[in-house]
Design a protein around this nucleic acid. Structure first.
Length: 254
DNA sequence: ATGGCCTTGGTACAAGGA
C-alpha cells in the first residue's frame, strides 16, 4: 500500500501535474493540501476518470485539502473535532485498515504574530484529537504539510533559519509532542542521504541550489511502523514547468 | 552579480505563503 502527500499550491493550476503524477506513481492514497478551490469547483470527475475516489474540503483562495484513494474512504472527518475553525485544513478517512489524516498545518508567519498564536492553538487541538483518533484507530498515518522542520538536518542553512518560522523551538516541541503520542517520522525510519528537502522557495533559484526545508511529513503509528517498507521524497515534480513549491512525500506499507 | 517568486481576486496591487 502506497500513501502520499503533496501540497500542490492551487489544484486549479496543478491539476494536470497531479494527474500525471497519479498515473506514473499509482499511490493507493494521495492527500492534497492548498487546493485553493471551493467545494463546487473540486475536480472529482477528473480524478474519477483517473481511477480515484475523492473526498474534499475547500474554501475560496486559501487552504483546502483533499483525500484521493483507489478504494473509497470511510468515516470521513473534516477539520479537528471540537475546534472551531474558519479554515479548511484537515481531512481524514479510513482506507482499507488504515486511518489516514491529511493536514495542512498553519504557516505561522513569524514568531510572536497572531498567526503564530493560531498555529500553537491549532497544534494543541490537533494533538488531542489525534490522541483520540489513535485510541479508536491504532493503525494510523498523519501526513501533510506540517510547516515544521523537525531538526537542523531538515534545514538547508540551520544558522540562517535558527528561530525563524518553521524552525522555532515551540514548533519543534509540538512536533515532538505529536511523535510522543506513539507516532514515527517514516522518513527517518531509514538511512537517508543528507540535504533532502520537501519545499524550496520559488525565489533565489532555491531549488537549483537545493536551498530547502523538510516540512512535509508522514507520521505512522506504532501499529503501522512494522509495515513501513520505504519512505521517500519525490523531487521530480518540482522540476516541472510551473511547479508547486512542494514535492510529494511517499510511504510504502506492506 | 547577494537578488532573483507564485497565486488569488480582480483588473492595481495587496496579501499570503514559507
Amino acid at each position: 500500500m502506497k500513501i502520499a502527500t503533496w501540497n500542490v499550491n492551487s489544484l486549479g493550476v496543478r491539476l494536470p501535474q497531479v494527474l500525471d503524477w497519479l498515473a506514473a506513481n499509482q499511490p493507493d492514497v494521495l492527500c492534497l493540501q492548498e487546493t485553493k478551490l471551493t467545494d463546487d469547483k473540486f475536480t472529482h470527475a477528473e480524478f474519477k476518470e483517473a481511477g480515484y475516489e475523492s473526498q474534499w474540503f475547500g474554501q475560496k483562495t486559501y487552504n483546502g485539502v483533499a483525500l484521493l484513494s483507489k478504494t473509497p474512504a470511510n468515516d470521513i472527518a473534516k477539520n479537528i473535532f471540537g475546534f472551531e475553525d474558519e479554515q479548511t485544513r484537515v481531512i481524514a478517512g479510513t482506507v482499507g485498515d488504515v486511518r489516514v489524516i491529511g493536514a495542512y498545518f498553519p504557516n505561522g508567519q513569524e514568531p510572536g504574530s497572531e498567526k503564530f498564536a493560531y498555529k500553537m492553538k491549532w497544534l494543541d487541538a490537533l494533538r488531542e484529537w489525534v490522541r483520540s483518533e489513535l485510541a479508536k484507530h491504532p493503525k494510523l498515518a498523519l501526513l501533510g504539510d506540517f510547516n515544521i522542520a523537525p531538526e537542523d538536518r531538515d534545514v538547508c542553512d540551520p544558522v540562517a533559519w535558527a528561530g525563524q518560522i518553521h524552525c522555532t523551538v515551540e514548533e519543534r516541541d509540538h512536533f515532538q509532542k505529536l511523535v510522543g503520542l506513539g507516532l514515527h517520522d517514516a522518513f527517518r525510519l531509514f538511512d537517508q542521504a543528507p540535504k533532502l528537502y520537501s519545499w524550496w522557495d520559488y525565489r533565489m533559484l532555491a531549488f537549483r541550489r537545493n536551498q530547502g526545508l523538510r516540512i512535509d511529513h508522514i507520521l505512522v503509528s506504532d501499529a503501522l511502523k512494522p509495515r513501513v517498507l520505504a519512505c521517500h521524497i519525490d523531487k521530480l515534480p518540482r522540476k516541472n514547468e510551473r511547479p508547486s513549491d512542494h514535492a510529494p512525500v511517499v510511504v510504502e506499507l506492506s
